[in-house]
């Protein structure tokens, strides 16, 4: 019996969501009175791998073959399920990242495991094993009982705190065979804006809607995001009009996020928009219309013109930063 975590890397680096996932795995391992192993695929340094012990991993299986430099859902799923079998894992944890969304369902099939995707807190473990996930686009939560011996769970980013418990992990090299039939899908090119904070992982998000009138007015949104160290997002009509890239569109048909802070400027708060942001911990709304539905879903609000309010916030932020540095 053990808990196995797949630690996803981006170009050899781990992101915060990996530490969240390992901390989550450690908490589950403690509840089950068992230990926690991690599997890593691709080129991550031994130092970074051993450091995963800080979050509770006792053993790290390193499948560091050049062949696995690029993400490949078939090959990776096969490596992870092999690791689950050799480690005798009964709980396998994968981050609900874009890669994780392609991997976790495959791992579940390979292991004939039950599968809860998008968990948002620790499972309830007693007579039964129950995982809480979002459902109906942020309008509800589902409590899913996983009944099979082996269970696969994917965890939403920003849903669990990183907890350092100390220690280093033993790093074990593994050669995992995956056949050529797994390499039919070939990565041609990766286009990534490296200077930007990735929206799904962001702790703070500043978002703009049609109330901003045009793409030329996004300068103040970006300035505020930069000052905060926040990612930028937008409503659907804004990306439909090509004012902002589609990757920034949040909501029902865009991506769903749960940052600590979601600051919405000139967004009405339509139900489809709320579907993507309502699980944010703190919501701030700036809208000139006091009747905008978003105020009903907000913690803080300013009824006012964005073109007057945002510059004031930028000033205040600059002062705040100067005072807190």
């Amino acid at each position: 019996m053990s808990v196995l975590v797949y630690a996803e890397n981006t170009g050899g680096q781990f992101k915060k969501s990996v530490y969240e996932l390992i901390s989550y795995g450690k908490a589950i391992a403690d509840l089950l009175k068992t230990n926690l192993s991690v599997v890593s695929i691709g080129n991550v340094s031994d130092v970074d791998l051993a450091a995963l012990g800080k979050y509770g991993a006792t053993k790290v299986l390193n499948c560091g073959n050049e062949k696995f430099k690029d993400f490949n859902s078939q090959a990776f799923a096969s490596i992870i399920s092999n690791a689950a079998t050799t480690e005798n894992a009964d709980v396998v944890l994968i981050s609900n990242s874009f890669a994780g969304k392609g991997l976790a369902p495959r791992v579940a099939i390979k292991l004939k495991a039950s599968f809860a995707s998008g968990a948002i807190e620790l499972p309830e473990i007693g007579e039964s094993f129950i995982v809480k996930t979002g459902a109906y686009s942020g309008k509800a939560f589902a409590h899913i009982e996983l009944k099979s011996d082996v269970k696969v769970i994917s965890l939403n980013p920003n849903s669990y705190k990183v907890i350092e418990t100390g220690g280093t992990a033993e790093v074990v090299k593994v050669e995992s065979y995956t056949g050529d039939e797994h390499f039919k899908c070939v990565v041609k090119e990766i286009v990534r804006a490296t200077d930007k904070i990735s929206l799904p992982d962001a702790e703070l998000v500043v978002s703009g809607g049609r109330g901003l009138k045009g793409p030329e007015n996004w300068g103040m949104i970006e300035e505020m995001a930069n000052l905060l160290g926040a990612a930028t997002a937008c409503s659907k009509p804004v990306s439909d009009a090509d004012w902002r890239p589609h990757s920034e569109h949040v909501g029902q048909t865009g991506i769903a996020i749960s940052p600590n802070l979601y600051l919405a400027v000139g967004i009405s708060g339509a139900i489809q928009h709320l579907a993507g942001v309502s699980s944010s911990k703190c919501i701030v709304v700036i809208n000139k219309d006091a009747e905008a539905p978003f105020f009903k879903a907000a913690d803080y609000g300013i009824v006012g013109d964005a073109f007057e309010v945002v510059p004031k916030l930028i000033e205040a932020l600059k002062k705040f930063k100067a005072a807190h540095n």
Binding site: S114, A116, A142, H143, E145, L146, K147, S148, D299, Y300
Partner: peptide
């Protein structure tokens, strides 16, 4: 392999705290 045991809905947020635009 699995079964949805129950659903619940998010706790409504408390009343929004409004800040005057003059003191943004």
């Amino acid at each position: 392999l699995q079964e949805i045991k129950s659903y619940d809905t998010p706790k409504p947020r408390g009343q929004v705290k409004l800040i005057s635009p003059d003191n943004a």
